[in-house]
Each structure stands twice: as structure tokens, then as C-alpha cells.
Computed example of a mutant assay.
Amino acid sequence: MTFRHFARRRGAIAVLGVVAALTLGACSSEPTVSASGTEGGGPTSEAPAAKPASLTLTPAAGTEDVAPGKPAKVAVTNGTLTSVTLTNPDGKQVQGQPSADKKSWSTSEDLGYGKTYTWSGQATGEDGKQVPVNGAFTTVDPKRQMAGSLNVGDGQTYGIAMPISLTFPRAVKDKAAVERALSVKTEPETEGSWAWLNGDTSVHWRPKEYFEPGTKVTVDAQLYGVAMGGGTYGRHDVSAKFTIGRSQIVKGNTKEHTMQVVRDGKQVMDFPVSYGLDSDPGRVTHSGVHVVMSKHSTYSMSNPRYNYTDVNVPWAVRISNNGEFIHGLAGSVWAQGKKNISHGCLNLSPANAKKYYDSVLPGDPVEISGSTQQLGSKDGDYSDWTYDWTAWSKLSALSS
């Protein structure tokens, strides 16, 4: 081998050594350093800038004719509320409560009608800067206010057919707005619906089927501040909590001249009865589901059309305000169980009437069958059960 040939060969080996070194460098785990001096060579990320607090007032500052039934609120994003005060025209602070995270504040008492309320306070933003809470709004000064009254009371016990009635002195124009302010809660849960009756002066709630005995019921009408239409607003809220008692159903048949009382599924009374005279539409007892409305140890009966006034009867239980009662009458004992001679009422002997009277709860159903006339919507305030469920549901202002 000549020297020249050997030198070329050594040069080739040297080149291969350089390539190997470059290849090993590509697999190295050592970090690379960019020209800017940062590892990895990527762009530098910056922390987001802290944001100022942003406030939302409800109602907004400058709003007029605010309905006072809903709470006034302040909410903040990108910060927390440091202090909030809402004052009335006399400078009195309205009661309110902040949320646990200090992101909002809400009034906890009703606002008044026709008043201007002023906000004050401040919020602290994420940027550490203060943002003032300020502004004012004015509540509506209504043309008139209207209150509703319930037929049920706190702590009372009612029968399984008891309807809930909310009655107003005048017809309600915006029935949907009023109905949205109403709620009925039951334990156990019970399907039911509201229906507008009596020329839109009352709204009733009844269950689809009779209540289960022992049901706990809470009715709440949040009417204050509700726009009822035509410039009328709700005067105040009303509510009640009551209980449904045992199941007691009267089953009467005008053709058989009988009346049975079924309590919790067992017949506990069976009385002979004289019902209304069948041949006279003005005297016949109506078939259908009546509801006990009230009871009186003595009641004075008058019907000038049939030439009698101030006839006192014992142990009278009103089952409709069309004049139908269950009561005692000694003078018709001879006909009871045999013949219908009354003016629409169910006549019992005074002793039997007393037994029934002592067992009665308002809201007990009285189911009458056999007569030529049917109980209808014009027969009194508690005609709720004369409707089938489909027809009843359609009387809701919120029905689709």
C-alpha cells in the first residue's frame, strides 16, 4: 500500500466519525437553548391581566314603574361586593342579604308602591380597584290594589274533596299573571290544577282524584306586586297550611231514598232519607258530587217561592249554596225511606242528622245519584267536581 492511498482511506474514516457524532447529538436528551435564552425555543406565555369589576343592577338604574313584588338585586363579575345599601325615600335601609361568595346581594323584604329607591356601596375588582354601586329606580304607583282571600285556614283539617278557592272582589284581567304567582305543594305529591270560575272572580285548585287521607297541603299566593291587568296590582300575599283528614264519602240515591256514609272504605251509617220532590225541577235534589261547605247546629230556612220563611231545622250540613242541605226534620220522618217530598234537601230524622253532623268535615264529598237533574257549574261555589278532569284542566289560564 502506498502512502497516498493510505491517507485517502484515513480521511474517509474521519468523515464517518463526524456523521456519527451528529447522529448521536440528535438523540441526546440534553435541553436545547433558543437564541432568546429560553429552553424549548417556543414563544413566552404571559399571565392574563386582572379585570375590573362589572356590576349588574336589577332593576337597572333609572327604571320606572317597577313592580315591587320581586327582589331588587346587585350582581358582580370579575370581583366581589364590598358593601351594598338600598335606601327608601326616607333614608331607611331596605333589608337585604349578600350571597356566600359575595358575588350578589338581594333584598329580603318587600318594596313599597310609588317609591324611589337609591343604591350605594362598592365592589372590588380582580384588579384591586373599587367600582361604586350607585343609581336609583322607582316602583309603580298603581291605579288600584286588589286582595284575594282563601277558603282554607292554617292548621285546619278538611275532607278529601276539599277545593282550594282564592276569591277576588272583582274579575281578574290578567289571569295568567296571577296564576303564575300561585303554588300548591302536597305531601304525598298530588296531581291537581287551577281553574278560573265565577266570571273570573275566583280561581280554584282541586286534585285530579280525591286527596289521599292525611295529605299535608301548603297553598301560597305571592300576589303582592303582581300586575293583574288594567292598572290593578296585588295588595298582599296569602297562604295557608292544612291537613286532609280521614276519607268519608256520603253515597245517596234518590230512587232508593237511602243515604250511606262510608268512612275509610267501610260503611258506618245507613239512613232512610226523603229527597227533593222529583216532579218539580225547582225542588228536585241534584245528582252529582256535592262538597260539604259548612255545618250549623240550627239553621233558619226560607224559600218565598214555596211560601215558607224562617223554618228552623236542626243539625244542618250545607252541601251546596244552591240551597241543598242534609238536615234533620221531624215532620218528614213518615216519608223518609219511602217518598221524596223535600224542597231539595236530604231530610233525616233529628237523631240520624245529629249522628251524621258529628262526623262531618268541610270538604267531605256527597255523591248523589238517581235524580232527574244534574248538579252543574251554576249550582254553587263548590261545583269543582261537576267537571271531568279534561274539562277542568282547560279552565286554567296557563293551559296550552
Rank of each mutant, 00 (worst) to 15 (best):
V15G: 09
L22P: 10
L22V: 15
S29V: 05
S36I: 08
G37L: 11
E39N: 12
E39F: 15
P48D: 11
A53N: 07
S54N: 10
T58Q: 14
P59A: 09
A60K: 15
V66L: 06
V74C: 05
G79S: 02
G79I: 03
L86V: 01
T87L: 09
V94Y: 06
G96M: 11
K102D: 08
K103H: 13
S108C: 03
S108V: 15
Y117W: 03
G121F: 05
K129M: 01
N134A: 12
R144Q: 15
A147L: 07
G148V: 08
S149F: 06
S149N: 06
Y158H: 09
S165K: 09
L166I: 02
T167W: 05
D174K: 12
V178M: 13
S183M: 01
T190Y: 09
G199P: 11
P207M: 02
E212I: 02
T215P: 14
K216G: 04
V219L: 05
Q222L: 09
R246F: 05
N253K: 14
K255T: 13
E256M: 03
E256C: 00
T258Y: 05
R263W: 00
R263L: 00
M269I: 00
V284Q: 10
H290S: 08
S294I: 00
Y299H: 09
T309D: 11
D310N: 15
G328F: 07
G328P: 07
S332N: 12
S332M: 13
N340P: 06
H343Q: 10
L346A: 14
K354L: 09
Y356L: 15
S359C: 03
G363A: 09
P365S: 07
L375A: 13
G376I: 04
W385T: 09
W392D: 04
S393Q: 14
K394N: 02
